[in-house]
């Protein structure tokens, strides 16, 4: 463990992102109204709602994958993975807090999703692949 505090920092940013994603899951109504035109049909609302629910669920799943990789110790002591993870989850939590408070357009969620959920999860999965399948103990 080279850098002190990097393990708890990564854990807490992951938990922060998990909590805020969960909160959006429970109170997403206003954000969906924000990305619909003035007059909309129930059908349009349901479609947007479904899109956001899928995005949030996948994001929760990716965070779960990362938590599993973290707790099993695959990437717990890898500074590079930890740095990417801390940076993206911290910025993701802040962006999603603005998402709720400023009632962002729900299509903007996908930017946060791709940069702050997918990037660290892909890195985590490729690290797990490298460690378990290719036996590269980094």
């Amino acid at each position: 463990m080279g850098i002190p505090g990097i393990v708890p920092a990564r854990f807490l940013t992951l938990i922060a992102h998990l909590v805020i994603t969960w909160i959006i899951f429970w109170s997403r109504g206003d954000n969906i109204l924000a990305c619909l035109p003035q007059s909309y049909s129930q059908d349009e609302y349901n479609r947007k709602d479904m899109q956001l629910v899928v995005g949030l669920s996948v994001s929760l799943g990716l965070i779960a994958v990362e938590l599993v990789g973290f707790f099993t110790g695959i990437s717990m002591f890898m500074p590079t993975v930890a740095l990417v993870s801390i940076a993206s989850h911290a910025s993701g939590s802040i962006a999603l807090a603005y998402f709720i408070f400023d009632v962002w357009d729900c299509d903007l969620y996908w930017w946060v999703f791709s940069f702050c959920s997918c990037t660290p999860a892909l890195l985590e999965i490729s690290t797990a692949f490298a460690v378990i399948v290719l036996k590269k103990g980094l």
Partner: peptide, 9 residues
């Protein structure tokens, strides 16, 4: 590991 992380949590 659980106890350590739980302390921070």
């Amino acid at each position: 590991i659980l106890l350590y992380c739980n302390g921070w949590y």
